[in-house]
């Protein structure tokens, strides 16, 4: 089957530092990939590069999405084509209404696909439905984007955005941080339901808790800017038992 996301020899990172260095990764529709790696290795940087952040410029290699070269494509265009990142630490933006922002986002997607704007009533109905599913309080429609949200609420809000935008590639950067055990169970259930044969998941995580619900097809160990080892779920167990040292090929 054709790849959904294909990364070839990618070199990228902020201000002259190649935090991503010669990285290769292929994700096909329907797959679940997991990236594990030490703190500060560059996992969040990788996810930001995939979304097209201009402050993390690409200095080598290529990124393809649904068969097209998107290496130079602006962020918003990538999002509209179906790339979604649930941020590790979602940013608070005071004064910008949470749901109005989301309506804007939904309509930007629709416009890009030549569709009419969603009717405000339809939008609200759908958003409320998902908010209830995620256990988000009613007053979320009144609040500013992530402003004063708890860690868990921020993560749920990211998933609300995912549900409304219906992306094909979902990158979850430490979705489990900030959520309590029940929260992780709820959210992973929702993500599992969302996932289907046309959609792929890329999970960045330190914990295996989430694998109880979402079964990974591939586990990658990320270190020194690239993927140093790829395996199945058993690799995660090895990390748990012996840390990352075993994969790094000796001390620096």
């Amino acid at each position: 089957m054709n790849s959904l996301l294909q990364i070839e020899s990618l070199i990228a990172g902020p201000s002259e530092t190649n935090i991503i260095n010669e990285l290769n990764l292929t994700i096909r529709p329907g797959e679940v990939h997991v990236i594990m790696g030490p703190n500060g290795a560059g996992k969040s940087t990788l996810s930001a590069v995939i979304t097209g952040r201009e402050d993390y410029p690409v200095r080598g290699g290529r990124v393809y999405f649904k068969g097209e070269d998107i290496t130079q494509l602006p962020m918003e265009e990538r999002a509209r084509r179906g790339i979604f990142l649930s941020h590790q630490s979602p940013l608070a933006i005071p004064g910008v209404n949470n749901l109005q922002f989301l309506r804007f986002a939904v309509n930007s997607h629709r416009k890009a696909h030549g569709e009419d704007e969603m009717k405000p009533g339809d939008f609200l109905k759908k958003a409320r439905e998902y908010m209830a599913l995620l256990g988000l309080p009613e007053d979320f429609s009144r609040r500013s984007l992530n402003d004063g949200f708890s860690g868990g609420e921020k993560k749920r809000n990211e998933i609300l955005q995912m549900l409304m935008l219906q992306p094909d590639l979902v990158i979850l950067d430490e979705i489990d941080s900030g959520l309590d055990v029940d929260g992780i169970a709820t959210i992973s259930g929702i993500i599992k339901n969302y996932h289907n044969k046309n959609r792929a998941l890329l999970l960045i995580t330190h914990y295996q808790k989430i694998f109880e619900t979402i079964k990974p097809d591939y586990v990658h160990i990320f270190a020194k800017g690239k993927i140093v080892k790829t395996g199945g779920a058993e690799l995660a167990a090895l990390v748990d038992a012996g840390g990352f040292e075993q994969f790094l090929g000796g001390k620096e």
């Binding site: 979304t51 952040r53 201009e54 402050d55 602006p74 962020m75 918003e76 999002a79 509209r80 990142l85 941020h87 979602p90 940013l91 933006i93 005071p94 004064g95 910008v96 922002f101 989301l102 804007f104 986002a105 930007s108 997607h109 890009a112 500013s144 984007l145 955005q161 935008l165």
Partner: peptide, 20 residues
């Protein structure tokens, strides 16, 4: 970046942020 990552154009994102 946060707004653009959700498909909002750079121009609209700026308008929304100043509005915020």
């Amino acid at each position: 970046y946060y707004l653009r990552a959700r498909g909002i154009s750079a121009e609209d994102a700026r308008s929304l942020l100043i509005g915020g």
